[in-house]
Amino acid sequence: MVNAKTTGQLSWRRNPALWKWIRRLIWWSACVPFVFQLYGAVFNTLGADPAKELALDTGRWALRFLLLCLAVTPLRELTGIAQLAPLRRTLGLFSLFYASLHLLVYALFLLELRWFEIGDDILERPYITVGFTAWLILAVLGATSPKRMVRLLGRRWRTLHKLVYLAGVLALLHLIWIIRSDISQAVIYGTILIVLLSYRVLNHFKKRAAKAQTTRI
């Protein structure tokens, strides 16, 4: 006989309908910052320098979604809820979405397509290079995120997608580089990133130790 309590617990953790709704909710919530940005841009409520405001806000959300994306795997492993796994892709793509907006705002409204200046920017302001590299990584990961690409790349897919950690580090560096005196955001996001990366490093060594032990036995 099956214990009613156990089935109850199993049912919410594995209930596909519930998780479909949760994922849908997360998807729509992830669009909310964009709605605010769009509203601000259209109705000109972003203050005296709307271009800068948009650039800052899209950049912040790109980093936030990247960190959320990196939090999915630890959360899944710690809670044992396998249904969380698809969120990694969703949140990663939202990070790419906001990073692309960020780049678009920079090119259209701050640089105003004066491409000859990009050379100066990249040489004189390395934080632009660093940020652009982070976006490039996210774009490659986004392009290889469909299931078809996962199958096509096979083992190499996992290796390629480890670049997401580098994107996180570069995005943080990009943020630190523009600080004038307020280190609060760098400290908060940096701490979260360090925790998420340490989890991977620890896991890696734990797995290696476990493997070594089994081979010895």
């Binding site: 000109n44 203050g47 005296a48 320098d49 709307p50 948009l54 409204f109 105003e112």
Partner: peptide, 8 residues
């Protein structure tokens, strides 16, 4: 300042 998105 002020600027808009389309006047730099």
């Amino acid at each position: 300042l002020p600027r808009t998105l389309f006047s730099s």
